[in-house]
Nucleic acid binder design. Structure first.
Length: 278
DNA sequence: AAGAGCCCCAACCGCCTGGGC
DNA sequence: TGCCCAGGCGGTTGGGGCTCT
């Protein structure tokens, strides 16, 4: 009856991952695919908790992860989504291919929060900070707001529009090349979001395609084959399904060499990371 | 040059949910 | 039907690096 615990806690290593551990995990995932995370440490020869392996893979080692800071467009999208969804980082991350919930959460707490405060916007409520205390007390949190908005999708906070409009960075930033939505003025973008019910449902729904074009994924340079593989997909669903298939069956089952090159890219990244660590 | 303080982010912790037994 | 586990999620923390004095 029941299952074995995730890890026995005894003899399980904690703390930063070493390059050797990373290589073991990468090699295992790329050759065997993602199966039961509980079994991964044992099969990969790691003294880690399965949970830790999953976290390391999803937040750092995955080949489809973007590197570097969020772009202006991504940042603005995070702000907009946070205004509606609150701290549901995984939901927000789902709209930003190549970004993890942890990454977005960290970026929010370290960068965006400060930017909003600097602009006089409450990062929690997305309302002006100089609001009267009474208003602040009565104003609902984004999370609550999002639940309300499920009943009434027209209740977008006006301040969010102001947030976008007042963004100095936005007025000087270049629009995202691959996403036509961002070619418009920020105000227009937001208006279009409010007026376009379909778009709104995309933002709030569960299975919608992301707004950011997947062709902008910043894969390693030598992973062109991977780009070739994915660029042929006609929709996000196709691409996502294909990636999930990879997860389910293991890349070797597809007879694709491209992942070996992706892996090389990862190893290059790791080497850079390790040098950085030293 | 060195110490203090701050910033950033990888990783951990604990809770929740869905599903297997 | 209820227990237990795996996976997922959001909050928090610790340590390395950076900046300031």
């Amino acid at each position: 009856m029941g299952r074995q615990p995730c890890c026995d806690k005894l003899g399980v290593k904690k703390g930063p991952w070493t390059a050797e551990e990373d290589n073991k995990l990468i090699n295992f995932i790329l050759t065997s695919g993602q199966c039961c995370w509980r079994a991964v440490p044992k099969l990969a020869g790691l003294r880690r908790c399965g949970k830790s392996c999953r976290l390391r893979w999803t937040n750092y080692l995955r080949p489809d992860l973007k590197r570097g800071l969020l772009t202006e467009s991504e940042e603005q999208l995070v702000i907009d989504l946070h205004a509606r969804l609150g701290n549901r980082w995984s939901k927000i991350a789902a709209r930003l291919p190549g970004r993890t919930d942890n990454e977005i959460k960290n970026h929010w707490n370290t960068h965006i929060k400060k930017k909003l405060i600097k602009k006089g916007i409450d990062p929690v409520t997305h309302e002006p900070l100089q609001k009267e205390p009474q208003d602040i007390e009565t104003s609902s949190s984004p999370g609550e707001r999002s639940s309300e908005s499920e009943n009434n999708n027209h209740s977008l906070p006006v301040e969010s529009a102001n947030t976008i409009g007042s963004s100095e960075e936005n007025s000087s930033s270049s629009p995202t090349e691959n996403c036509s939505v961002f070619n418009d003025e920020p105000e227009k973008l937001f208006e279009s979001l409010c007026e376009d019910e379909k778009l709104l449902s995309y933002l709030l729904g569960e299975d919608e395609p992301p707004l950011v074009d997947t062709t902008s994924w910043d894969l390693p340079n030598n992973a062109n084959n991977f780009n070739n593989c994915t660029s042929s997909f006609t929709s996000w669903d196709d691409c996502a399904t294909w990636l999930l298939d990879c997860q389910d069956f293991g890349v070797n089952d597809f007879g694709l060499d491209c992942f070996n090159q992706v892996e090389m890219g990862i190893l290059d990244t790791l080497e850079v990371g390790n040098k950085k660590q030293k």
